[in-house]
Design a protein around this nucleic acid. Sequence first.
DNA 1: TAGATTGTTAATCGATTAACAATC
DNA 2: TAGATTGTTAATCGATTAACAATC
Lengths: 214, 214
Amino acid sequence: MAKTVSPLRTSKATIDRLPLYFRTLRLAQDEGIDIISSEELGRRLGITPEQIRKDLASFGQFGKKGVGYYVNELKRNVGEILGLNRHWNIAIVGIGHLGVALANYQNFVSLGFNLVALFDQDPNVIGQRVNHVKVEDSKQLARIVEERHIQIGIIAVPAAFAQEVADELVAAGLRGIWNFAPVKLEVPASVRLVNEDLSIGLSSLSYHLTHAEG
Amino acid sequence: MAKTVSPLRTSKATIDRLPLYFRTLRLAQDEGIDIISSEELGRRLGITPEQIRKDLASFGQFGKKGVGYYVNELKRNVGEILGLNRHWNIAIVGIGHLGVALANYQNFVSLGFNLVALFDQDPNVIGQRVNHVKVEDSKQLARIVEERHIQIGIIAVPAAFAQEVADELVAAGLRGIWNFAPVKLEVPASVRLVNEDLSIGLSSLSYHLTHAEG
DNA sequence: TAGATTGTTAATCGATTAACAATC
DNA sequence: TAGATTGTTAATCGATTAACAATC
């Protein structure tokens, strides 16, 4: 029975690969595979087996030498490391096209995230239901965040309003923010901030195409 | 007059920061700022001035010692490096909630990307207009990609169909793919692939909240 | 000129890769 | 046992930070 340890310092790169391992293990599980080697995991992900073993080993000893990793056990352990067994309550602020898309994103549910609130300031949007969740007036944000024990807030408002929304979320006692607005947000160190700037991906594509060929 | 050079090998980290510089320079321009120092740029972005100077210097000498960087000039140069002056033609495949959100994403336009085609296979969606662009039948993909000189394809279909779509895009002569489906896609080395896996961001948030406190 | 700020070289830090002993 | 595969240590590689000469 492997024990999950919480290392003092794990690289960001390692942490960003864990969700990929989790996803692949889930697929392997669906295929009825019992045991998987780092070699095979690496083949499926395009990551070297050494890298995978190193990443996993930083959290504990999950494999069996000469055998490989038990898929069920490893998936459970990786899920535990990621905190995906916790059922985080999340809220989305800004129910424009992106907010609607995120509210309907099925993968969140399958990762154990509960969408418990939606907020917007547009009277035409307030009161509507998106994926069975009612859109509330942003003015109710502080009250509802507290009442529904929301830990993670997703910011999907225009850049100009993002900091304001972040401030309200922080004041309401939120612990993590996932920001889709292309601005640098200022939040206290106690609040975890992850930025998802979509223009970076497309710009990087543009860069590589430009420098690959005329 | 600074000259943009194309370095043989620039780090991925540097390239991912360039769009941030571009964005900040555009804002500075809007504010009417003529000259900006690496110090001030760094303050606005949360990046060290040394890092910024190093990144920029790998493409040429854009600044004036003792003075700083001319905002207009630097913005133009960074835009040129990123290939944002090229007006890439892009298509979105899969017009679900995410596809609709991406089709309406204003930042793409402001970065010089032209949305020229939308594809879906659902007869109820085909023929509709999203952000003034008509949704075409996926069966027409090869023909339209060629006709409209589309260079970049955005995959917003469910994971199960993503590889199939990627294959079609590649066969149609596409040069870059921006993939939102949570799967590892196989494409030839000549085609540039950028993955945007939204579950990574949220999982990493979950990880950090889990390991920060009980 | 004196003060400021870049561009670049050297030093440090961190992450990946290679190698291999341990062991199932 | 022999073959396979993990976990870990050492070696390499790459990226960031520090320092400073060049120069506006």
